[in-house]
Design a protein around this nucleic acid. Structure first.
Length: 791
DNA sequence: AGGAATGAAAG
DNA sequence: CTTTCATTCCT
């Protein structure tokens, strides 16, 4: 029943959206208002940063309207009746809906009024939506659905019309009209249409949809086909009156999933212009999302421990060495990983194992080898690339997807998703009943934005760990299409199963939430309120951010993180093992203790020193010139940190290489040959060593290495280092010193290393100064690579 | 059985 | 391109 209501609303809205040309202003406006209202009530918690403002605004408007307009019982009653009638076969759900309807009757009536003003019945539907068990997301979903429908409607309408005949147009017209009977017939048609739509959707994917639901849609569709036909029919029944094909799908998705509050944009749109703009944006976003989503058809391989490690620490390393190329960072990460103890690795390996288990659980059929080598994501999934590549891929995939790829995991996911969806539903209901309802009432009565935010935040925080985190993906949709796309598919249902996707989604949401919190300054309060897990989960982000953002505190933060996180990690790991609850791989990753890069560097230093002492004495001879230069540069700079090491460091290169080799050998984890790795590792080790030697200086000097500006000392040191480095490098071979301009780093290093293995560009490395350490590092890295290559 | 190949994340 | 790792395919 409830679903039906929501569905109806969604349809209407969708229809309105579809009709945008015609009745955009009225229908859209009314729908938007109603949506807003609903959103406010339900989503208070949801958090979204921007939304709050909009929501509040809308809420205020709503209130005014509410107060001003007398509830039209007749309308409300009609709506209720209609809903009931729709529910008809629904059964159990009806009772709840009715009860809720009574309580909310006033709201509904108001909504109806609004709708009447807008010319749409959407208001009623929306009001109905408010109660819907689906807590936050539903409303948002509904909104999204409406939006997506509007956006997608444009695109899909054609297809639908083509495939489905004229039904849709009639529907659109009907959609404008208030809810009307003939549901049985309509329903039937709707069902048929829906099925068709599903088929289309499968083919086309979810491109239109939000970004979240792709998998869900697929799953839903499949489920429908296989299992959930009945449920879907019931659900679908509501939408039937409205012809729009897409809406039903979206609605179903909404029900199952709980996307999130993307609606922000949607919420605002009372005015035509705004609506149109939003629609445009949405369309673009949706397009991007759609594109992104498609590639996901194929389940991605679960990340291994190392990748998880990279995911967790890449940002940290990158933060420290901004100038370094991603590849160089990867190398460092690889070396770092190699340097880690089993215990340290255990967290990651364990998490990887869990993730893998969950993943295979989710899709038992998954095969590592996708023989046909489907287009897959490659670049497409990537955030930056997503659009262009995704588009092409998406098209390709669209046609094929189901046909070929069916095999993969979809079915499995579907099955799993069903269970997950059920679980989610149950949870949602609980959530809706407990949290939101109370808040809704409270909100209705007293509307304090702050309170709302707090409540929302609290709830979000509390819930985030479990559901929201998993579902959140859509929240960020608009701003960040790619992530959403990734997370979107599996996010909901996968909650139980597909970690990766969820993680992404959760991330973005959390990030937003966190930002909001920070902005509002309520973070602390919220954290306190939320407590425990929230702290681990919620703070995890902040902690990371803080660590990254504030260089000074980095070390401390890292330490703190280590101290704190371990608990969380242990908890997560332990709980995760049994917990199951959606595997938020991201959360877990975040929770994983962030190993301190400093510790790693120090280790390296120490190892180097030791080796140097031992081996250094023996072989100081080899490259005296280079060593001398290096020592000269490094020695002074090293100062406090390296201290004794400085002089010793002079040996550098040869020793470094040897050490690298030794380390590689020592690592031994490698099953395979030393092969390239030895080479690469050599490079890496060399780079790291150099970096370490250099960095310590900066670190010691400022202790916080803000990198760029940081302290004057740092700059000076950087200059020194650069010179020394350049010197050291120059003698050997080419000069990586691309430093021409500050922005060099990656480009320069890459170019130098790749392009000129020889000494093509030996120029002024001295310029660097500005970027300081990072640049130096980059240069060093480049030099290393060159050196290794040359050698 | 072992080597080669593949792809997972992230720029 | 780059890392490690897990997996599969091929010889």
């Amino acid at each position: 029943m409830i679903n039906g209501l929501s569905v109806s609303g969604g349809q209407q809205q969708a229809a309105a959206a579809a009709n945008t040309k015609k009745t955009k202003a009225k229908s859209g406006g009314g729908a938007a208002i109603t949506l807003h209202f609903a959103y406010n009530n339900n989503n208070n918690n949801s958090n979204s940063s921007n939304r709050n403002n909009y929501n509040h605004i809308t809420g205020n408007k709503m209130d005014h309207q509410m107060s001003s307009s007398n509830p039209k019982e007749s309308l409300s009653t009609k709506v209720l009746k209609i809903i009931e009638s729709i529910r008809g076969g629904g059964g159990g759900g009806g009772g709840e809906a009715t009860a809720a309807g009574e309580t909310i009757a006033g709201a509904v009536a108001k909504a109806v009024e609004e709708a009447a003003t807008g010319g749409n019945s959407a208001g009623g539907a929306v009001a109905g939506l408010n109660w819907l068990p689906m807590p936050k997301r539903r409303t948002s979903l509904l909104q999204q659905a409406a939006v997506s429908s509007s956006t997608s409607a444009n695109t899909k309408e054609k297809e639908q019309q083509q495939g489905k005949n004229a039904i849709k147009p009639s529907a659109s017209s009907a959609g404008e009209l208030p809810l009307q009977p003939q549901r049985t017939e309509d329903q039937e048609h709707a069902f048929r249409l829906i099925e068709d739509v599903h088929n289309y959707a499968k083919l086309q994917d979810d491109s239109e949809d939000d970004g979240e639901d792709l998998l869900d849609d697929d799953e839903d569709n499949d489920d429908e086909d296989e299992d959930d036909d009945e449920e879907e029919q019931q659900r679908m029944a509501v939408p039937a009156p409205l012809p729009v094909m897409r809406v039903p799908q979206e609605v179903t998705r909404i029900q199952l999933e709980d996307t999130e509050e993307h609606v922000d944009v949607v919420t605002v749109p009372q005015q035509e212009e705004l609506v149109q703009q939003q629609q445009l944006q949405l369309q673009q976003q949706t397009a991007v999302e759609t594109e992104d989503r498609r590639p996901e058809h194929h389940a991605r391989r679960p990340m291994n421990a190392f990748l998880i490690f990279c995911k967790r620490h890449r940002a940290i390393v990158k933060e420290r060495y901004k100038s370094l190329e991603n590849r160089a960072i990867t190398k460092i990460l690889g070396d770092w990983w190699a340097a880690l103890d089993e215990q340290e690795k255990h967290c990651f390996t364990d998490l990887a194992q869990q993730n893998k288990d969950a993943f295979f659980n989710a899709n038992p059929n998954f095969k590592w080898y996708k023989l046909p080598a489907p287009p897959l994501r490659t670049l497409a999934t990537r955030p930056g690339n997503a659009t262009a590549t995704a588009a092409s891929d998406g098209q390709l995939i669209e046609e094929h997807p189901q046909q070929v790829p069916l095999q993969w995991e979809q079915r499995n996911e579907l099955t799993a998703s069903l269970s997950a969806a059920k679980l989610l539903r149950g949870n949602f209901f609980k959530l809706a009943d407990e949290t939101q309802m109370g808040e809704l009432s409270a909100l209705l009565q007293a509307q304090v934005q702050e309170k709302k935010k707090e409540c929302a935040l609290q709830q979000v925080l509390s819930e985030t760990s479990q559901f929201l985190s998993t579902h959140m993906p859509g929240g960020t949709k608009r701003p960040i299409a790619p992530q959403d796309s990734n997370s979107s598919n599996s996010s909901e249902e996968d909650a139980g199963t597909s970690p990766c996707k969820k993680a992404k989604s959760s991330r973005s949401c959390k990030g937003k939430i966190y930002q909001e919190l920070v902005n509002s300054g309520q973070l602390a309060a919220v954290a306190k309120k939320s407590k425990i897990r929230l702290n681990s989960g919620g703070q995890a982000d902040p902690g990371v951010d803080a660590a990254i953002s504030s260089p000074h505190t980095q070390v401390e933060s890292l330490e703190v993180a280590n101290s704190q996180h371990p608990r969380s990690v242990s908890e997560s790991s332990s709980s995760g093992g049994g917990g199951i609850a959606g595997f938020d791989l991201e959360e877990k990753i975040k929770e994983l203790t962030a190993l301190s890069l400093d510790a790693y560097l120090q280790r390296k230093r120490s190892t180097k020193k030791k080796k140097k002492f031992t081996a250094g004495k023996k072989q100081r001879n080899s490259n005296s010139a280079s060593a001398a230069t290096v020592s000269a540069g490094a020695g002074p700079t090293a100062g406090a940190g390296a201290g004794a090491g400085a002089a010793v460091k002079a040996e550098t290169i040869d020793l470094v290489r040897k050490e690298a080799q030794r380390q590689a050998a020592a690592v031994g984890s490698q099953k395979r040959k030393a092969r390239k790795e030895s080479i690469t590792r050599r490079d890496v080790s060399a780079i790291e060593q150099e970096v370490a030697s250099i960095l310590p200086l900066s670190i010691n000097g400022c202790y916080i290495f803000d990198q760029t500006a940081a302290c004057p000392d740092v700059a000076a040191k950087a200059a020194n280092n650069t010179t020394s480095l350049t010197l050291s490098t120059t003698p050997s071979a080419s000069s990586s010193s691309s430093s021409a301009s500050p922005p060099l780093s990656s480009a320069s290093s890459s170019s130098s290393s790749s392009s000129s293995s020889s000494s093509s560009s030996s120029q002024a490395a001295f310029d660097v100064t500005s970027t300081s350490d990072l640049l130096i590092l980059a240069e060093v890295a480049a030099n290393r690579t060159e050196l290794t290559k040359s050698n």
